[in-house]
Amino acid sequence: MFKEFKTTVGKKLIMALTGHLLIIFVIAHVIGNSTIYFGGLNSYAQHLHDLAPLVWTFRSVMLITLLIHLLLGIQLTLENRASKPDTYAVKKSLRATTASRNMIWTGALTGGFLLYHLLHFTFQVTNPDISARANLDSLGRPDVMVMVVSSFQNIIISLVYIVSMAVVALHLVHGIQSSFQSLGLNNNKTLGIIQKAGLIVSIILFAGYALIPLSILVGMVKG
C-alpha cells in the first residue's frame, strides 16, 4: 500500500487529500475570524483556549498535514524540474496559468506568512506590547480584539496580511481544481465547473480574510 503512494499518481493523491484538509481549515478559520464583526472575538478565543487538548490535537494534525503537503510539494517540484531540464527559446503557455506555474512559490510564501502569523498572533512575539496575554479585557480574558485591531491599524502589517491572502488565493485557484482532478473527480462536463467553482471559492476566501484588516484600516471595526 505504502509503495503505491510513492508513485507519481500516489503523491499527487496525497497532495490533493492534504490540500483538502488545509482548505477545510482555511474555511473554518475564516468563519471563526468573522466573530470580530460581532464583538465575539475574545469569547471565540477563550472557547478555543478552554478546549486546549482538542485544539492541540487539531493543531498537531494540521501541522503534520501541512508538513506532508509542503515536503511532497517540494519533492514533486524538484522531480518536475529534473524531468524538464531545458526550456524553449520561445515560451508560450496555452492553458497553464500564473497560478498553476507558481504553486511552489505561492506555497512557499504561504508557508512564510504562516510562520509570521503564528509568531504574531499565536506566540505573540513580534509585537509584545499588544500581546493578548499581557492585556486582559474587562472580563479578564486575553484581549485578542485589541491585539488584532491595533495590529491592523498598522498599515504595513495590514498590507502584509492582505498581500499574503492574495497569494493564498492564487495558490487555491489552481489548487482546488487540481485536487479534484488528482482525485479523479472530474469528467469533461465537470472540469470547467470545478475550475470556475475553485476560482469563486478562492475569491470568497480572499475577501473574507482581507476584509478584516481592511475594515480595521478604514476604521469600520474599532477596538
Binding site: 499518481v9 514533486l76 518536475n80 524531468s83 497553464a96 487540481s178 482532478q181 469528467n187 472540469l191
Partner: peptide
Amino acid sequence: GNCSNHYECQAVCPKGIKVSFIA
C-alpha cells in the same frame, strides 16, 4: 515528470485527447 494539471497537453494535442482521461 509528475502531472500538475496545467492542461497544456490537451491544448497542444493534435488529436484533441482530453485531460478527463487523466482523471
